[in-house]
Nucleic acid binder design. Structure first.
Length: 458
RNA sequence: CGGGGCGUAGCACAGCCUGGUAGUGCGCUCGGUUUGGGACCGAGAGGUCGGAUGUUCGAAUCAUCUCGCCCCGACCA
């Protein structure tokens, strides 16, 4: 087996797939288009979830859970929504199997057909607004600020781990408001939350934007999004926030009595980010040595590798390093001490680099004698031997520095790959090279269509 | 659904053109030496060559069909 990774510059897809595989993040499952998220990958996702969830709570939202199944009739109620999602829905038509009377195995029991097919949710607006009908009577019930962590299924034609899977994990916020203005404010606020999360936690600079009518969420009046630039020069939509107007309130008859004692339809928003963020995280920072994780999302922030010959040496190193480990833990740093003797140090170095661990410490007998330790940074791949005294504070500072540094690096990359095009020729020329382009648009769908036809820009 | 590529040991692959004892590297097991950037030596275990049919004395190899995976496009968070 080759030890090196494919080069990022040579084959971006292959490089991405290899990182996902070798960093132990996820793998394809036997079910078409679905993925298995492995413990290490899931640990990163959990950190993202926790950070996002805290941000949702801080903005007044509460979590709830709605069913996986959506009756077909629900999906049909909002016309544009129905049309938009119809072609990618998984449908449940039966509730029972039985032994095959003509041989082995099981068959779908033809007598167990459901009266109404159930759709496996591609998104939950319909089930949720059906529930909101009973939850909302008065302006005093508003705003209703709910979020759900769930899995959804969209039967995509072509799938890719984390970036586009048939089933994916996400968070979907669904809010109801008394006024149009308040709902728009919420839509923009949550887009801001996503942008803050992307920048402060993922160290990923994003551009906030407004989607054109043709790219809007099915059933929305306005779709806002954040877009990040990947290292291959392509943009990745990383989060969306929709202003749904009164569309769903009207379809599900959600009316409330306002302060003037008049019946009015509620105003809606919905917003979501998914496991696609994992894909973005990988593509934005990783290099030819593997994954690079921002310290704030790294399940292991610091790994310590003892280097020893004899078991007695290991015991000496253990004794020397244990106080530092305890101190780091008390400072809230996720430390792993890897004294496993199955692998040699060199192997471990390569392995933790592949997994994106931000800081690696190496300590051997030489260090014990000199009261030193070797610090290696994942972001710069640089190494330095420093005194063991005060190492804990130094680590905490360094974690912050790495977080800032990889953000800066990604930011510079984006700046260097953002261009201005003032005419059609410049635009066409640049789009071939990739990157973001600031261009002029007359705002019509015809022009948008023409641009998409003649180039591959979105 | 279109266009390309690939299915041979747990993983990565060679062998196929020109049919004749199923191979290499990594990993795994055992023993020994090693341990500051993916250690080395020795001995082992591990295969319905994706599946079916055909051609042949003989098929991983040739033919037909079939299934699966990956990449590129249309679709999308």
């Amino acid at each position: 087996m080759s030890k090196g990774l494919p080069k990022r510059s040579e084959n971006y897809s292959e490089w991405y797939n290899e990182i996902v595989k070798r960093a132990n993040l996820a793998e394809n499952s036997p079910v078409r288009g679905c993925m298995v998220i492995k413990p290490y990958g899931f640990a990163i996702w959990e950190k993202m979830q926790r950070a996002l969830d805290d941000m949702f709570k801080a903005t007044g939202h509460e979590n709830a859970y709605f069913p996986l199944f959506v009756p077909k009739s629900f999906l049909e109620k909002e016309e544009e929504h129905a049309e938009g999602f119809a072609k990618e829905c998984a449908v449940v038509t039966h509730y029972r199997l039985k032994a095959n009377p003509e041989g082995k195995g099981l068959i779908v029991d033809p007598e167990a057909e459901l009266d109404e097919p159930l759709i496996i949710r591609p998104t939950s607006e319909t089930v949720i607004w059906n529930a909101y009908k009973n939850w909302i009577q008065s302006w005093r019930d508003l705003p209703l600020l709910i979020n759900q962590w769930a899995n959804v299924v969209r039967w995509e034609m072509r799938t890719r781990i984390f970036l586009r899977t048939a089933e994916f994990l996400w968070q979907e916020g669904h809010t109801a408001h008394a006024t149009r203005g308040e709902a728009i404010e919420e839509t923009e606020k949550m887009l801001g939350v996503y942008a803050t999360f992307a920048e402060q936690w993922m160290a990923m600079p994003v551009i906030k934007g407004l989607k054109t009518p043709s790219e809007r969420f099915a059933g929305a009046e306005e779709t806002y999004c954040i877009e990040a630039l990947m290292q291959d020069g392509k943009a990745l939509q990383s989060g969306t926030s929709h202003f749904l107007g009164q569309n769903f309130a009207k379809s599900f008859d959600v009316q409330f009595v306002n302060k003037e004692n008049q019946l009015e339809y509620a105003w809606a928003t919905s917003w979501g980010v998914s496991t696609r963020l994992m894909g973005a995280l990988i593509m934005v920072h990783s290099d030819d040595q593997g994954l690079v994780l921002p310290p704030k999302l790294a399940p292991i922030q610091v790994v310590i590798v003892p280097i020893y010959r004899q078991p007695e040496d290991l015991a000496t190193i253990d004794a020397k390093i244990t106080p530092a480990i305890e101190k780091l833990k008390s400072l809230g740093v996720a430390v792993k001490y890897d004294a496993d003797d199955k692998y040699k140090p060199g192997y471990k170095f390569a392995e933790y680099e592949l997994r994106g661990v931000p800081i690696r410490l190496g300590i051997g007998m030489r260090d014990v004698e000199n009261n030193t330790i070797e610090i290696a940074r994942r972001d710069t791949l640089s190494k330095e031997t420093v005194s063991l005294d005060g190492i804990e504070e130094r680590i905490v500072d360094l974690l912050n520095e790495i977080q800032a540094n990889i953000y800066q690096k990604a930011y510079r990359f984006r700046e260097e790959n953002t261009f201005r095009a003032d005419n059609w020729e410049q635009f066409k020329e640049q789009i071939e090279k990739g990157g973001f382009i600031l261009a002029h648009w007359d705002g019509t769908a015809e022009t948008e269509e023409k641009i998409k036809e003649e180039t591959k820009a979105t």
